[in-house]
Structures are given as structure tokens and as C-alpha cells.
Nucleic acid binder design. Structure first.
Length: 489
RNA sequence: GGCCCCGUCGUCUAGCGGCCUAGGACUCUGGCUUCUCAAGCCAGCUACGAGGGUUCGAAUCCCUUCGGGGCUACCA
């Protein structure tokens, strides 16, 4: 890392191109950008790369903003908060790019290229056939007056191309070390489309310079575009010591070792939110993909993450996304939540699932069950199946469990339990347990596992539930007895 | 095809020449606990892609090879 950066404020940017919902790969990058900025006390800049307006939509842009907010990755400059280097949507900076493009053209760094897409494609095809690296052949670097006149009468709209000089580009990637690209394999690239709109290659470099970005942490798919970006810095007259430091993050791969896509598992962050994953769990898990604190700890808070995160500890090989581990971490985070916090987070899920409407009475009852289920759920959405039996008006035993209490043995247990409970006035869980153990275990010599299984199904409707006696207490005497009656044939 | 990146248990990782008969976590298997499911605790399975070097000594350095991935657009 260049020493001159030592005293400079670190400025990191996250610059997605929202052509869809942000996915876990994007977010992992955003997280590292954010963590590095916070670790160094620098600035986190959020920029929207929407130069490709055919693919980027306002809805996706808004979704990206909402996702970052939801995750708690707050930015210092960018959409909604503004900043001294705005605007932060590239579509609002078109005049800036046009200015630089004109400058590059005047300086001779860039030139107009009139080759049509078809011609380009045909020539690339020929190159491939001849086993030559396909790429622009430099045809329009020099155009004769005749050709130019012809193109113009044909009404061709030229693109602006950057001239790549002979030689090579070497830069030091903070994660991968020195990387060199021979310019023979970096053809002259397009800066401005035929319609006058800028391309990523132009906008990204101009903005990073103008926004005084010091560190570019991004996905490794952009590694081979770095020499082009550096070429633009040169044309802009940026001094080498002022180039940002590049750090290309390894990929996050799907479960089946293919690149992450909708095909192999859910990738959009919105999907995880709807499934009841905690933002801090997602961040914690994602932080572990390509980075580790160095010691054996894995459960880190956002605060700890910012304290511990360094680029030096990011490594270079791709990581596979593992839903099981995410779930495990999510469960850990849920168990760490205070009851108040857990209640607040769980309520929307219960309302959405139609378990409750949100009245004070309902919430009070949910609050009482939370301690029982906090360690039994891996996601917030799991609460529904755990507490549903307390709220349903037309109770019914789930179909797969119904046969399990229809047998003679179970019916005997249920009848006996009903007798005992009808005679029981105290309706707290320890009294209930005492009475039922005495009758079913001691007197009838049943195994607890057998005896209580039938009761559990009759009371909660499922063979999986919160602890039985606590469940009965919460359900209340009348409803509990009614369910036993209902279960007895 | 060319250029570039990457290669430790099934997965995420620790490891930056001796502390490694390779540690942790998730998963899985078995056990304990137990009213179910979880949680918790204990135990177990399983890895340095391969081949050459360098060195007293290599997972760690070098070379080759194999494998995976990215790029090769008027996408980003």
C-alpha cells in the first residue's frame, strides 16, 4: 500500500449497478467496503452505477438503498444523504463524463470509431478462427478522409474509444499482490456509446477520481478491467501516487460450486429478510466468507466487525455459500436477543402469517411464550408454527399427527388425563406436571415419552411444540380441557 | 483458444519454514441430558489436488502439472 495514503482519509465506495435485487455477493462486497471504512475511521460512499438505463430501473435502485439500510450499512455520502462530491447517481453526472470524454478526444487519448457492431463481430470471429486474441484491432485509430466522409454520409454514429498504448500495466492488488496485464490483451475500449451515453469504463474511473476514492474493494470479476480504469486515470492526468488502492474480493459461489445465481439457491437479500433472517446474522455470516477474525471466534457483532476488519485478512480464494451455517448463526443471534427485541422482530411475521392481528392481549401472550421458543427457532418465521396453537379459533390436530392419538393406548392416556385435569384447580405448569406425572407415570407406569406425546398432540396439534406443561398453562384451562375432549373418540 | 485469478476436512476457515501425528466452526454420525423439538455437553468421521525441487526441516518458498473460476461487449 502506497505510503502516501498513510495520512490520507480513507474513502471507500460501494458502487453497484442495480440491474436486479442486490444479492449476497453484492452485499458481501458492500459489507467489506463498509467495515473497512468504519475500521479506518474513513468515509463510506454509496454510488449508483446506472449508466446502462436499459437494465437498471428506479425500483431496483430504491431496493438497493432499502437493503443497505436494513442491513445497517450506513453511508456517509450517497443517495438520500448527499455529500460534497455528488450527485451519486451516475445518470445525473452525464455532463461530467461528456466533458472528460471531449478532453480525451482533444488530447488524442481517445478517438472516434465508426465500426459497426456487425463489422466488429465479424472481425472478432475471424480473430478467433485465426487463434488470435479477439479484441478491437485499432482500425479507426487512423481514418482516411474518404472513409470518414463515407461513414458520415452513411449516417454512422461513432463510439469514442480509448487508445491503449503499447506496453503493460502493473498494479498492486491489496489482496492478490502485483498483477500485470500486457496491453496486447487489453484492446482499445469504448468510453462513450454511439448515442453519446457513457460506459462503465469511463464513469467508474472518472467518479472514483472525482470522489477522491482511496480504496476500491470490489468483486474479482472486475480484476481484468483494472488496466482500463488505470488508463483513464492516466488520461485524466492523475498522478500514480494518487491512484486508489485496488482490492479484488473473491467470489461468493452458490451451493453447487457454480457462480451464484437464481438457479442455485436464493440470492436476493430480500428473500432472506422475508424468511426471518436477522440482518446482523446475514452480515456476520457473509463476513466469514473470505475473511476471518484470526482467532477462533465466529460470532461477532457489527461493532466487533468494524474493529477487527482489515483487508490484509481477506483472502483470495472463492467461498461457497452455505445456508446451513447461515441458519446456525441466525439461531445463535436469535438466542442473543432480549425478549423485547425478539418480540418486536417476531410480531410482523406473526401478523403476516395471520396468527395474530397485533392486539395488546395477543402480544402479551406471545411475550410469555417467547422464552420457551427462543432456543427452538432458527429463523423469525419459525415462530408461527410454534405459537399458532395458542391463537387458532378452530383448532385441529395436524393431519400427519392425528393417527398417532387414535390408537387405544393413546385414548386411555387422554381419558385419564382429562379426569385428572378436570379435578385440578391449580393451572400452573408445575402443578400440571405434578398431577399428570402422578396419574400417568406413577400409577399407569407409562414411559413419559409415550404418555406425554399423546397429550402434546392433543393440546398443540403437533408432535413438535414448546414444553407441554408450559403450553397448557399458556393455553388456559378451558381451552386445554376442550382440546382433550375433542381428541377423545 | 488467449489473458488473468484461485487450490487446507463435505462447507467456511486457522496456518504466513520447525508450536501441525494440521486447530476451530457448520454439516453429518454416535452418546449424555430429556415430556417432543430444540438448546447444551461429550465423542467420532473427514483435508494440505498431484509431481518435482530448495532446506537440517514445507501446508507454508520455487517450478511444472492438473483442476476450478473470471474476463475476452456500444454489460457492469
Amino acid at each position: 500500500m502506497p505510503t502516501n495514503l498513510a495520512n490520507k482519509e480513507v474513502r471507500v465506495r460501494f458502487a453497484p449497478s442495480p440491474t436486479g435485487d442486490l444479492h449476497v455477493g453484492n452485499i458481501r462486497t458492500a459489507l467489506f467496503d463498509w467495515a473497512y471504512a468504519r475500521h479506518t475511521g474513513g468515509k463510506f460512499i454509496f454510488r449508483i452505477e446506472d449508466t446502462d438505463r436499459d437494465r437498471v430501473t428506479d425500483e431496483y435502485i430504491q431496493a438497493a438503498i432499502d437493503t443497505l439500510k436494513w442491513l445497517g450499512l450506513t453511508w456517509d455520502e450517497g443517495p438520500e444523504v448527499g455529500g460534497p462530491n455528488g450527485p451519486y447517481l451516475q445518470s445525473q453526472r452525464l455532463d461530467i463524463y461528456a466533458e472528460w470524454a471531449a478532453k480525451f478526444l482533444a488530447q488524442g487519448d481517445a478517438y472516434y470509431c465508426y465500426c459497426s457492431s456487425d463489422e466488429l463481430e465479424a472481425r472478432r470471429e475471424a480473430q478467433r478462427a485465426a487463434n488470435v486474441a479477439p479484441g478491437y484491432d485499432g482500425k479507426c485509430r487512423e481514418i482516411s478522409a474518404d472513409d470518414l466522409a463515407r461513414y458520415q454520409t452513411e449516417g454512422r454514429k461513432p463510439v469514442l474509444r480509448m487508445r491503449m498504448p503499447d506496453g503493460s500495466t502493473t498494479f498492486t492488488d491489496a489482496i492478490r499482490g502485483d498483477v500485470t496485464f500486457d496491453h496486447n490483451f487489453v484492446p482499445d475500449f469504448v468510453l462513450v456509446r454511439g448515442d453519446g451515453s457513457p460506459l462503465y469504463t469511463l464513469a467508474v474511473a472518472v467518479d472514483d477520481v472525482l470522489m477522491k476514492v482511496t480504496h476500491v474493494l470490489r468483486g474479482e470479476d472486475l480484476l481484468s478491467s483494472t488496466p482500463r480504469q488505470i488508463r483513464v486515470y492516466q488520461a485524466m492526468g492523475v498522478k500514480i501516487e494518487d491512484y486508489p488502492t485496488f482490492a479484488h474480493l473473491p467470489f461468493v459461489m452458490g451451493q453447487d460450486n457454480a457462480k451464484l445465481s437464481k438457479r442455485n439457491g436464493e440470492v436476493s437479500i430480500a428473500w432472506y429478510r422475508d424468511r426471518g433472517f436477522l440482518p446482523e446474522a446475514i452480515c456476520n455470516y457473509l463476513a466469514l466468507l473470505g475473511w476471518s477474525p484470526g482467532d477462533d471466534r465466529e460470532n461477532v457483532t457489527m461493532q466487533e466487525l468494524t474493529e477487527l476488519f482489515t483487508v490484509e485478512r481477506v483472502h483470495s480464494s472463492p467461498a461457497r455459500f452455505d445456508m446451513k451455517k447461515l441458519e446456525a448463526i441466525n439461531g445463535d443471534k436469535i438466542r442473543l436477543l432480549s425478549l423485547e427485541d425478539l418480540l418486536a422482530r417476531v410480531t410482523p411475521f406473526l401478523i403476516k402469517d395471520g396468527v395474530i392481528t397485533g392486539t395488546a392481549d395477543e402480544l402479551a401472550l406471545v411475550a410469555k411464550t417467547l422464552p420457551l421458543i427462543q432456543e427452538r427457532i432458527a429463523t423469525l418465521a419459525d415462530v408461527t408454527s410454534m405459537v399458532k396453537f395458542l391463537f387458532v379459533s378452530n383448532f385441529e390436530v395436524e393431519s400427519e399427527s392425528a393417527p398417532k392419538i387414535a390408537d387405544e393406548q393413546s385414548q386411555i392416556v387422554l381419558k385419564r388425563a382429562l379426569e385428572v385435569l378436570t379435578a385440578t384447580s391449580a393451572w400452573d405448569h408445575s402443578s400440571l406436571e405434578q398431577a399428570l406425572r402422578a396419574a400417568l407415570i406413577d400409577e399407569m407406569a407409562l414411559k413419559p415419552r409415550i404418555a406425554f406425546s399423546a397429550l402434546r398432540i392433543a393440546i398443540t396439534g403437533s408432535h413438535i411444540s414448546p414444553p407441554l406443561f408450559e403450553s397448557m398453562e399458556l393455553l388456559g384451562r378451558d381451552a386445554s380441557l376442550a382440546r382433550l375432549v375433542m381428541a377423545i373418540k
